[in-house]
Design a protein around this nucleic acid. Structure first.
Lengths: 335, 335
DNA sequence: TTGAAAGCGCTAACAC
DNA sequence: GTGTTAGCGCTTTCAA
């Protein structure tokens, strides 16, 4: 058995209330008493029982990090892991523990997020990887559990979000291509159920128009965020526009696939076709050629999300935190 | 307020004891009563409060996944994330939740694992990334909290481990090189504080000796698991052994660095020097050339670890779970 | 088959 | 300043 405040009370010759007060730093207690209690607690190697405290406080000092099924697929590993680290580090810094949850393709059972929340008394949740058509999204919003979304631009009384400025990121990427003299720039986008796809398309279009180029929907191929989309996209776009000299991809994995396909078509990168990716996952520094891409501050997304959630927990209102992307120029656009 | 068994009891006109019995499927209750209680609970959308249950049961149905600082560095992302997924999925399947913990370089505070355990009433912990000289390792073993280590071969009453057969993996790698006709095979190892380094070196040596080649310590460079070690290792080894035609690296990141360095030395891979890595992280399929490496079943390591831990929790004894590595032959050894 | 009562470790009125 | 008391939501003897 581990030591409880009762044990301390007995040893110190005071009531458990006094012990509680000393431990929690309340002011209405004699300094000498507090000191003694604290010393004894330390001597007895006392560890407060968070479970008991949660029960009475109705707060668990725990947040749920819910990773939606989709995000678990190949390409996003890198991405997610950094965010997880950010969330964890910041949460711990602020006195919260993190419970991991995921809607896995392996478990058939459809556990609702809310179920987890009430069962574990989670103070709030962090959602990442949800698609616009995710049925749980509404559920989370309805139940007024404080919640922070990553890459889903929703704001309400109890819900905020963190995202990187995707319009801006896409514009930077495309502007870079335009600056290099490209006029016929294709795009391979992620699936339509991701909010980020929408914004990246918007940024692509804006950049074109800002530079007096016409936006042509046919120059955009809608796929998903995986490698195969890059392969298919290249073949479709090159079929329609043999004169395409540059390609903007909504993810690095798309770009990797695209480069592979371009090589198969006998095109050199960047000499014949320049390619820009999105995300700046680790592996793009090792591809051939190394990929020019839009960096997202992943770790920071995590810390900011945790921060925002805790702010929400202390009564703050939902807000949007938008971080800045950064263009990383490598050899897939310029030698 | 959410609904409690008290609410159900009132509505059903029975005592809370009866409700508890019905909910937990005890036999000593009238079928009709049970049915009614269950129906009412369902109607009221009852969710048992895990916190309250934990308090009285002194079991939290929660396990801690503790990731040691070291592992957070670059190269291991890929690695860890899959393990986390495996642990999570299997844990949930068995009715446990997972709390994330990490000794981060960012937080100065030295929280002990045990502190987390007692505070959160964790039923058991899973440790990954600990080095042989980790001071907490002993702490965990002393406190008899059921514990499963990943890649640290310790077994005790309350502690087991999961690892991939590193001796075998290294032997496969080196045997592959020998089979290709290589006689002068160098090795770049990870740091000495990782158990796996020890075993991989052992496997390297065994393979050499099994093939009548002499083991020469000078042919082994001790670095760490990162890219730079590969760069430095190549220059050291090539200095000493200009006739080296093959290189076995204890991690993929080492191999990536090694290939980079080899190119700088004007060596072609694999024509002049063949390179084998270890881990099979995602990016090695995109390096130039794609890397031959030893695959570790990461997701499975996670599921097996969670399984073992739960077995330990139900009174099982510590045991060693050893998984099989697999050689992935790509173009860095054979064209 | 069911219920009353105690208690898990802690906090928080409220009295003294 | 300090102690008494009640109670968080649940499980579990023990009696009935």
């Amino acid at each position: 058995m581990s030591v409880t405040i009762k044990d301390i009370a007995k040893r110190a010759g005071v009531s458990i209330t006094t012990v509680s007060r000393a431990l929690n730093g309340y002011p209405d207690i004699h300094p000498r008493t507090r000191e003694r209690v604290l010393r004894i607690a330390d001597e007895m190697n006392f560890r407060p029982n968070a479970v008991a405290r949660s029960l009475v406080m109705k707060k668990s000092k725990t947040i749920g990090l819910i990773i939606s099924e989709l995000t678990c697929s190949s390409s996003s590993h890198h991405f997610i892991f950094d965010i997880i680290r950010g969330v964890h580090d910041q949460a711990v810094l602020m006195g919260y523990d993190v419970i991991l949850s995921a809607t896995s393709p392996y478990q058939q059972q459809e556990i609702s997020y809310m179920e987890l929340c009430t069962r574990r008394q989670l103070d709030g949740v962090l959602l990442m990887g949800v698609r616009t058509d995710d049925r749980y999204l509404q559920e989370v919003l309805d139940a007024s559990v404080p919640c922070v979304l990553i890459d889903v631009p929703l704001v309400s009384k109890t819900c905020g979000h963190v995202m990187v400025d995707n319009v801006r990121g896409a514009r930077m990427a495309v502007q870079h291509l335009v600056d290099l003299g490209h006029r016929r720039i294709g795009m391979i986008n992620g699936h339509r159920q991701a909010y980020v796809s929408f914004d990246r398309l918007k940024g692509y279009r804006q950049a074109l128009e800002e530079n007096g180029l016409t936006f042509d929907p046919d120059q955009v191929f809608d796929g998903d965020f995986k490698e195969d989309a890059g392969i298919e996209g290249v073949s479709r776009l090159l079929d329609r526009f043999p004169d395409m000299t540059a390609l903007f991809c909504a993810s690095d994995m798309i770009a990797v696939g695209a480069i592979r396909a371009l090589h198969q078509w006998g095109k050199r990168v960047p000499e014949d076709v320049a390619v820009v990716g999105y995300d700046d996952i680790d592996l793009v520094r090792y591809t051939h050629p190394p990929l020019t891409t839009v960096h997202q501050p992943r770790y920071q997304m995590g810390t900011k999300a945790a921060e925002l959630l805790v702010r929400l927990l202390s009564g703050g209102e939902g807000e949007a935190v938008v971080l800045e992307p950064q263009l990383m120029v490598r050899e897939s656009t310029i030698r």
